[in-house]
């Protein structure tokens, strides 16, 4: 069941340095929210806070509230391991598990969480590969190692793997950064499909990509949220001069 994400007054520190400064932002359910901004501005950190992946590094600290649906993800009742099952994540570098086959990569989450048994696993794997628009390319050799696929195929495999555990939210950290134009086009088509069923938050350096695929765009600079708006208006008529400067390549 897709859920929206509500970020309220959220800050994040690595040791002494504050990389996310009091950001409030809400990602509406079944829409694509794009986070743009120069490298090191804190947008990836913000993204990785939504599944509490950043806690794994020592010396980090977070303040503020992030809610998925109505639930505060930092509340004591939430187990971060369980949270990460509910929040799918796609990374900049395609990261299929290299020792596993295409089939087993998608089945990994199902087996991990005991979501399916026996024949059901094969059905779910096929469904997820179809949803990730990869089935036709891999159906004849599901036993091939996932790492042997092309970069774009690997990324779609990772999406299928994330789909298998039925997340409520999809986080994507520059999913197209290492792909060729055809691969990028495929992933973008896929994101447009995914938003019918999921809430998607995507970090991208490519502003054209943000304008093509997102419903809402947020501009982050030096850890602060500068501006957020409906994507069309955001790109056509930014209200903050810093946004306009960034969009016209004057900063970043």
């Amino acid at each position: 069941m897709a859920q929206g994400v509500n970020i309220e007054n959220f800050s994040f520190w690595y040791g002494q340095s504050q990389v996310v400064k009091n950001i409030s932002l809400s990602a509406p359910v079944r829409q694509v929210t794009a986070l743009i901004g120069p490298s090191g501005c804190g947008k990836t950190t913000l993204l990785r806070s939504i599944n509490r992946l950043h806690e794994l590094h020592p010396g980090t600290r977070a303040a503020g509230r992030i809610a998925i649906g109505e639930e505060d993800i930092f509340s004591a009742a939430v187990d971060p391991v369980d949270l990460r099952r509910r929040v799918g994540m796609i990374f900049q570098k395609p990261s299929p598990f290299p020792h596993l086959s295409v089939f087993e990569n998608v089945a990994a989450g199902l087996r991990l969480h005991g979501l399916a048994q026996g024949k059901e696993i094969a059905e779910r794997v096929e469904a997820c590969l179809r949803k990730a628009a990869l089935w036709e390319e891999v159906k004849d050799d599901l036993g091939r190692k996932g790492a042997l696929l092309s970069g774009g195929q690997q990324q779609r495999l990772c999406i299928a793997r994330a789909l298998a555990v039925e997340p409520e939210v999809f986080l994507m950290d520059e999913p197209c950064a290492s792909l060729d134009p055809v691969g990028i086009m495929r992933i973008e088509e896929l994101i447009r499909e995914l938003k019918h069923d999921y809430t998607v938050i995507i970090v991208t350096h490519n502003m054209h990509q943000a304008s093509r695929i997102s419903d809402q765009t947020a501009f982050v600079l030096n850890g602060e949220l500068v501006e957020v708006g409906r994507t069309k208006e955001f790109f056509l008529a930014p209200t903050d001069p810093r946004t306009e400067a960034y969009l016209t390549w004057k900063i970043g």
Partner: peptide, 27 residues
């Protein structure tokens, strides 16, 4: 075993132990 794969495993909802036994050691 690259940290990107470990993070992918954690992001899929695997615990630290599961990541060690299902990803790091087999890998």
């Amino acid at each position: 075993v690259p940290s990107s794969q470990r993070e992918a495993s954690m992001a899929l909802g695997a615990s630290k132990q599961q990541t060690v036994f299902r990803l790091v050691l087999p890998g």
